[in-house]
Write a protein that binds this DNA or RNA. Sequence first.
DNA 1: TTGAAAGCGTTACCAA
DNA 2: TTGGTAACGCTTTCAA
Lengths: 346, 346
Amino acid sequence: MNKRAGAPPTIIDVARQAGVSIKTVSRVMNKEPTVHADTRARVQEAVAALNYRPQLSARSLAGAKSFLIGLLYYDPSAAFVAGVQQGATLGCREAGRHLVVESLQENGADVQAQIESMLAALRPDGMILTPPLCDNPAILETLRAQRTPCVLISPAGEGHGMASVRMDDALAAEELTNLLISLGHKSIAFIEGNQAASQRRREGYERALKAHRLLPDPSRIVPGTFQFESGVEAARRLFALPEPPTAIFAANDFMALGALTEAQRRGIAVPGDVAIVGFDDSDAASLVWPPLTTVRQPLAEMAMAAVQMLLAGDARFDADAPAPVRVLPHEVIVRGSTAAPAKGRA
Amino acid sequence: MNKRAGAPPTIIDVARQAGVSIKTVSRVMNKEPTVHADTRARVQEAVAALNYRPQLSARSLAGAKSFLIGLLYYDPSAAFVAGVQQGATLGCREAGRHLVVESLQENGADVQAQIESMLAALRPDGMILTPPLCDNPAILETLRAQRTPCVLISPAGEGHGMASVRMDDALAAEELTNLLISLGHKSIAFIEGNQAASQRRREGYERALKAHRLLPDPSRIVPGTFQFESGVEAARRLFALPEPPTAIFAANDFMALGALTEAQRRGIAVPGDVAIVGFDDSDAASLVWPPLTTVRQPLAEMAMAAVQMLLAGDARFDADAPAPVRVLPHEVIVRGSTAAPAKGRA
DNA sequence: TTGAAAGCGTTACCAA
DNA sequence: TTGGTAACGCTTTCAA
């Protein structure tokens, strides 16, 4: 006897229809190998006929998995969330999981409480953390205490022993700097940011200079905050130097756009008088003139990899196994903001 | 007897600790009024002592709610997802719900299957749809068939009888146009987009012109695609007119940025020779020079309202009750890309 | 105002 | 290879 019609079919309905036990249906649904091919076919037929889909809450209550992956973030740029999320949702779909997103409210003390409460309620199979949360020791400790598998996206340091996915910021910066050098630039300034990524990018910048025996000039390395305005300010200082640089490498696009704006305000031609490169390939990078030469972070791919690592068990707390780190390839995008320096200025 | 230590406490542990039945604990957790104050206090004490948190899967299996809200999107701009999501996660947290995000893969035929499968597995308490999904009749029909409460964010038309949240695009466009008119502009061009919102914005633009007895000139209304390049192209056509406009209203920021770029490439000063306004307050709007005068959509607020409507039952399929529509206030943001027209050009 | 017991739909253990 | 049956942790119904 069917329950009231209209109610979604349950495993019992399928078992009855296929003439097997519910346990066998369960085995088929979970792709367990120990089922006879005929039986399996019969069950699958019944599943299709009834349009049966196992209910998540029942599965997770009875079993060990929740089929949920959590994505935790706090005040990142829109492009960053969107990119990561795109990859995470795709990865989850492929794996039959679902993505639960939580944007933490504040970086205050109750953040831990927020996380604990989420973990207790949802019991996610794994968590994905983005900067700056993935660099917050208190948060990582909370997660570790609950033994929730985690993968960090682009952590600042070594990820505190947790699995992580990143791109090679230093290498990308080195490539970008090499591009400028190969165009003929010898006087290349660097605008720093106030996040961990900036440090790594600067390393690559200096590595490239050294490889070409161009001595880094401290006066050409100016601070910034990853904000547009700080790029304007930094450029102002650079253009005021007795010998202004012929190229500017900003640690992110926003600051590069600030530098671009300041150059244009002063009638300094880009890329004619000064070449400018950024980092991140933000939306705005291709929405200005000249469009910005920059580096694309493989955000979606990184998030997808994170999901895969989570489900492959790479993020378990296996004690002495070193935490795995996956490094994904980036892409240098050459646009109109770079060119060879004007005659006599190289 | 406690289970193995380390396992999270259950309702049974709390009941034992408080000396009441599990049903009473359940009542307290669900804030049911029919509990004596003393009993309630005793239970809450036990809950705090054990750090008890009800498990979602058990709650949803036993009860009628899943405590999950779904957010469905397909290829929107990063800023749009990020904005909506910020509001949705906050709204969910306040309501003790969690946000499950699904980004559909394609706008193809299997989209319905994707949705059905999600609904069957998750049984979300409600769904939030963003454009263009919220304008897709097939998708809406699928949702309606499952009787899942839905709230549409900025649907194109009347929302097909479903609850929706929107801003008043036409009013905002009218205000923006009025701003230009009040600055002294009489020759204001409009760059259209290829989405429903563009239509509404154009209505407001024309309303403002008519109110000031400025006849809309068809040659000053040019098509676009909401993409940067189409803004460049549109501006090219406008600047080639015998009498170029003194102001350009682009139906979104990306096209406005294209127009800005084209103006600068031609040495046409902004806002001196031509004023430019956009729509959406995208990141890039404040990352260029001059920064763009535009309109901010209250995306986060709209999403938060959507969650509230969902939980208030505003989105139930109550047959003859008309679907509720909430309209949220926007914000006109005046920046550097607008000024009075140059003498003699008004 | 409180409680006992019967589910909810699935997985897991153990036996056949 | 299969099936019976006991969990899983909570809400709900019905009684007290």
